[in-house]
């Protein structure tokens, strides 16, 4: 199995504050990696550096053997890395279908102003793709609802569906279940993960719920104070005493449930 993402010694400092340091991670294709850690541990900073939202102060990031360190996010998206957001980023005044059609139409256009000037938004290919994506993420019945009126879970699914429109090979999900009720979390993750499996996408997801991490991740990165303190399969990481005291301490009940 080849490696899709190679992160070497990246560091991010904001003035005197070190948000991330000494992070080295190698992700093979088709792996699903869970990222855990307390608030402020550097999880989102890590995601932001890979997706070009932040430029690392030091170190390098390679995607499919290409150096993508410091590229603007729109170029990184074009190369095949997409992301969803902790707070779903959709177009609130537009319907679910319009949101999805925009995403599909952009994915189908070439990266040139001229191509986008002469390509109609309702080209048949993009329309079919948009419908298929809504079906895949099971939100087709909301197609004519304005995004602003959607329940939180549906909006999250739309956000992820739009991120997947460009057929990325690597997808980063920043807290896909935040703001979702406990009863709905598992259902949402089932939909997302099975959709991503059918598209054969490598996934990195940030998650606070240890039970979900244990259920869906092949491997877990535990962040603490800006660096990775554990990197192993979920069982091993969740059983790590350092992880238990520093991260999952307050959530031990959940770990117990996951083990049971």
């Amino acid at each position: 199995m080849s490696d899709i993402l190679v992160v070497r010694d990246i560091e991010k400092t904001f003035g005197a504050v070190v948000a991330a340091r000494d992070i080295s991670v190698v992700v093979p294709v088709h792996q699903t990696v869970g990222i855990i850690g307390a608030n402020g541990a550097g999880k989102t900073t890590f995601v932001n550096m890979i997706t070009g939202h932040l430029t690392p102060s030091k170190g390098s990031i390679h995607f499919e053997n290409k150096d993508i360190t410091g590229l603007p996010s729109r170029d990184i998206v074009r190369l095949g890395i997409s992301r969803s957001f902790q707070v779903a980023q959709v177009f609130p005044t537009m319907t679910v279908l319009e949101n999805m059609r925009i995403a599909s139409a952009i994915a189908n256009s070439r990266d040139s102003i001229l191509d986008r000037l002469f390509r109609p938004i309702d080209a048949p290919g993009a329309v079919v793709e948009a419908d298929a994506a809504l079906d895949l993420f099971q939100i087709a019945r909301y197609r004519h609802a304005k995004a602003v009126t959607l329940p939180q879970g549906v909006r999250k699914l739309l956000d992820i569906a739009m991120a997947v429109a460009g057929s990325p090979r690597l997808l980063l999900l920043d807290e896909p279940t935040s703001g979702i009720s406990i009863e709905e979390k598992f259902g949402l993750m089932e939909v997302v993960m099975s959709a991503l499996k059918t598209r054969r996408i490598t996934v990195l997801f940030v998650e606070h719920d240890m039970e979900i991490v244990g259920r869906f991740a092949d491997r877990v990165l535990a962040f603490y104070d800006g660096t990775v303190i554990a990197d192993a399969p979920p069982k091993a990481v969740l059983a790590d005493p350092k992880v238990q005291t520093l991260i999952s301490g307050t959530q031990r009940a959940h770990v117990g449930q996951a083990d049971a």
């Binding site: 998206v77 957001f85 177009f91 925009i102 109609p120």
Partner: peptide, 23 residues
């Protein structure tokens, strides 16, 4: 009705999403 022209409302709504769609 073109892709470029259709992006007006999306830009007004949410520039971050437009950037992360690769534009």
């Amino acid at each position: 009705r073109s892709v470029a022209g259709s992006l007006s409302n999306p830009i007004r709504d949410n520039e971050i999403r437009v950037e992360f769609l690769g534009i």
